[in-house]
Design a protein around this nucleic acid. Structure first.
Length: 859
DNA sequence: GCAAGGTC
């Protein structure tokens, strides 16, 4: 029996208005008339508001109701339920997919059908984004089933304020099929890839390694994990590097910073120290300038989550839960918004006025209204649907359900008040000292007006004093030679991860926190405090992708997908075209994973075994700097460059360009940069020539004046990507040597050798053809060596006895690759999923004769 | 037992 009742007495034209959520329906009703009537519907949350309105000079009865997000959802039919029975390739490529109204949305469907059958017109008030446009089509379809003649329009609004809603009604448009299609394409791609890859991975690994969770794959969750793993690898491969610097201190204990900061070469610093050492300095400049500390941008969801995590120590997921609760209780505006600028139609003064009686910040709010108000800065993000998060009703501390709820309300309100305040203002004084050819400086700050900092307790601006010197003063100084060392990258915080996801387009404002939750649910990562670290399962999974040459954990996979969605949204491509293309590409990858399944098990297992104590270590020590991951480096971890030292020596020591040119002995010319070198005598009596740009790190000069290079004996030849040196490395997983770039992990360049080669050794001979150093090779015991040569050149392409090539760089369109000689691959750069897919590399020897056609190869 | 996107 139909228990729905609504009055249909009026003869006026009835216009059905449908919003994406109950709150928007309520706001539209409020904005259009305070006299609206509220009726219950079949869905307890989704009320029906009725009011009389004059629409384009016609008196109409507006019926305003809502849905709650999507009505429909994609699903595989029942017959595909069994994971074991169906090849994941079928699930990915061929299985049909149903798009039906979800069971929990059937009441809403009945509502819409009921209302539409009575109404003459339908106005779609779904959020003005792609998802909203798709929901608009879902609503329209249902309404048209009940009333095929219903006249349909789309309202475009940038905020639910009187002005915006009226404007939207005056300029009604039509829904955009292209935008909606891009969402359907995304849904299908996500489901097909997610379901098929998850089934494949779970069936392959779960039982084998006794894992308690499924081994899911999703185009957002795995790149999220990828970020976490990448950071951990950087920390684990970090090697401390020492640096030296000169410190100067005056008799007021004020320490001045060396303008060269620090250098990584003790000789140079010692030399400079010796040259500038004295007990007085000249004040060459005293500069005073006004400075400001900028107030924050209006609060969008992403920023709110980051702040909650960083400043309140509340996880993004929990913070969203608390914000939603505050929103439902009417204390704050809608918390899922991408917008960080206030629409001009919102009345900020009214919002501030609501806080005037607050016991904590009432006085501050009053001051803002009276004299201190300044319009908020405008950010550059706008979802056209919701304003930035702001308070809509005053809450005092004891009205909050708990401390966390209060903290979140407080953050949102203080942030809002800060946005409506002036920047903090101060005065900065910088003193510059000259001591011979070296300069040192020190800045001090005096805060003149705190302004927004009075209310925004989450930021600090610390004052510091500098002595009262005048330009030209000569002051007493104490110079010391100091030593320091680089520190490892910091562990990944949740706030940083959110930032990375946002920047790389992984997830949306409404889902980012869910993906972070998912990787924890799947036991890929753990969170302690605000620090997120991968578990051994997460590491093993990502490292297996990496080592087998797949880029499934990289963010660009999603970025490419987004780009394709845009093409559909703009009407440049058909949705079927891009679904087909993406699925075809992913089919190739899934087939390769299937072909390599034994190898995957082996690789994943090796990592799990190597990392068996990893999680325990995690609990004991946050950051002990010890390599824990088998980084494919074995004993060679000392070769890795720390993140801080990513720049080359030349770049790091750029200021050394200005070194004085005179030196102890007649200088020579640097063979790399033609600079005049400086000479110094070591304790053992040897003379050292040093290029001021540090091109030549050290050159021994024997007394006859001949140069003898002391460059690292392990260096092979220069990497073609970063110009650092390739080195012999040892892969624990494959138990063989390979050549890897010394800048790993910043540079991933590598040259792998045939399985038949067990180890390689650099010898003191040069290739007569290309000048690279030669290697002696040890072959596997069971390998019947046919090569006549004793020594081999491994420089890519130099000789054909041992075929080598540069590994393809995933970020470039280079056509080189790891492996044996094969047809040149043409990479259109169109879809950079798996750069190795046609590279039947030496891990995959058994398949090497069975070459597939590369999908991007022309003809 | 699969994804990600809405929303409650």
């Amino acid at each position: 029996m139909n228990n729905f009742k609504t009055s249909t007495k009026s003869d006026k034209i009835k216009v059905l208005n449908v919003a994406e959520k109950p709150s928007v329906a309520r706001s539209i009703a409020n904005v259009l008339s305070k006299d609206h009537r509220i009726e219950e519907t079949k869905s307890p949350f989704n009320k029906l508001f009725k009011l009389d309105y004059r629409l384009k000079d016609v008196e109409v009865e507006m019926w305003i109701t809502s849905v709650t997000g999507h009505l429909k959802s994609l699903k595989y039919p029942q017959k595909y339920q069994s994971w074991e029975k169906w090849d994941p390739i079928i699930i990915l490529k061929e299985a049909e997919i149903e798009n039906n109204i979800s069971t929990d949305k059937q009441n809403l469907e009945l509502n819409l059908k009921n209302f539409a059958s009575i109404c003459n017109r339908l106005i779609l008030w779904l959020d003005c984004d792609r998802e909203g446009e798709n929901i608009a089509f879902e609503v329209m379809e249902v309404c048209r089933e009940a009333n095929p003649n219903i006249q349909v329009n789309r309202a475009h609004f940038s905020a639910v304020t009187y002005v915006d809603v009226r404007r939207a009604l005056d300029t009604l448009k039509y829904p955009d099929q292209n935008l909606s299609n891009s969402v359907i394409a995304r849904q299908e791609i996500d489901l097909r890839i997610g379901a098929s890859f998850t089934r494949f991975q779970t069936l392959l690994l779960q039982k084998q390694f006794n894992l308690s969770s499924i081994v899911s794959y999703g185009p957002c969750q795995i790149p999220t994990l990828g970020f976490v793993v990448q950071r951990q690898k950087e920390i684990d491969s970090f090697v401390k590097e020492q640096f030296w610097f000169i410190q100067s201190e005056d008799d007021q204990k004020c320490i001045y910073n060396w303008d060269r900061t620090h250098l990584f070469d003790e000789f140079i610093v010692a030399l400079l120290f010796e040259r500038c050492y004295q007990e007085s300095a000249t004040v060459i400049n005293v500069q005073q300038k006004d400075v400001q500390k900028w107030k924050p941008y209006p609060l969008c969801t992403i920023e709110f989550e980051k702040l909650a995590s960083k400043k309140l120590r509340i996880s993004a997921h929990k913070a969203m839960e608390l914000a939603e609760r505050l929103y439902n209780k009417g204390y704050i505006s809608y918390p899922r918004t991408e917008t960080n600028k206030f629409p001009p139609t919102i009345n900020l003064q009214t919002i501030i006025r609501d806080q005037q009686n607050h016991p904590v910040w009432g006085e501050y709010a009053t001051n803002l209204l009276n004299f201190a108000f300044e319009y908020p800065k405008a950010g550059n993000k706008d979802d056209k649907a919701h304003p930035p998060i702001h308070p809509v009703k005053m809450m005092i501390e004891n009205e909050a359900q708990n401390k966390q709820e209060w903290d979140v309300y407080q953050l949102i309100t203080r942030h809002f008040l800060a946005c409506c305040s002036k920047n903090a203002k101060g005065s900065e004084t910088t003193i510059t000292l000259q001591i011979n050819d070296e300069t040192f400086s020190k800045s001090g700050l005096v805060i003149k007006e705190k302004n927004y900092l009075e209310i925004y307790i989450y930021e600090e601006w610390s004052q510091s004093q500098v002595p009262n010197y005048q330009q030209g003063d000569s002051i007493k100084i104490k110079l010391t030679l100091q030593k320091g060392s680089t520190s490892p990258p910091k562990p990944m915080t949740e706030a940083e991860l959110i930032g990375l996801m946002d920047k790389n387009g992984i997830g949306t404002d409404a889902t980012i926190h869910e993906h972070i939750n998912t990787i924890q649910d799947r036991e890929y990562a753990t969170k302690r405090g605000q620090i997120i670290k991968p578990t051994k399962i997460g590491l093993a999974l990502v490292e297996s992708y990496e080592i087998l040459g797949f880029t499934l954990h990289q963010p660009f996979l999603r970025a490419v997908m987004e780009q394709r969605m845009n093409e559909v949204a703009l009407g440049k491509k058909e949705k079927s075209q891009i679904v087909q293309a993406t699925i075809n590409e992913m089919t190739i990858i899934l087939k390769q994973l299937q072909e390599k399944q034994n190898l995957i098990i082996k690789t994943f297992g090796s990592y799990l075994e190597a990392l068996k104590n990893y999680d325990e270590d995690n609990d004991n020590d946050d950051n002990n700097n010890q390599p824990r991951i088998p980084l494919d480096e074995g004993e060679e971890t000392t070769q890795n460059q720390p993140k801080a030292n990513k720049k080359t020596r030349n770049q790091r020591n750029k200021k050394s360009d200005e070194l004085p040119k005179n030196s102890i002995l007649p200088p020579s010319i640097c063979q790399f940069c033609n600079s005049l070198c400086v000479t110094n005598k070591q304790l053992n009596g040897k003379l050292i020539q040093i290029c001021p740009k540090l091109c030549q790190i050290q050159e021994d000069i024997n007394q006859n004046g001949h140069h003898q290079s002391t460059q690292n004996k392990d260096n092979c030849f220069q990497c073609n990507l970063c110009q650092n040196f390739m080195k012999i490395r040892y892969s624990k997983i494959k138990k063989t040597n390979f050549l890897g770039c010394s800048s790993y992990p910043q540079c991933n360049q590598a040259i792998f050798l045939p399985d038949t080669v067990k180890s390689i050794k650099l010898i003191d001979k040069k290739c007569t053809k290309c000048g690279s150093p030669l290697f002696s090779l040890q072959f596997n015991e069971n390998y019947n060596q046919v090569h006549q040569a004793s020594f081999f050149c491994l420089f890519p392409g130099c000789q054909f006895i041992i075929k080598t090539d540069w590994k393809q760089n995933k970020d470039s369109n280079q056509t080189s690759f790891v492996g044996k000689q094969q047809n040149k691959v043409e990479n259109t750069g169109k879809y950079p999923f798996n750069p190795h897919q046609q590279n039947k590399n030496f891990y995959n020897k058994e398949k090497s004769n069975n070459q597939q056609k590369f999908p991007y190869q022309k003809n």
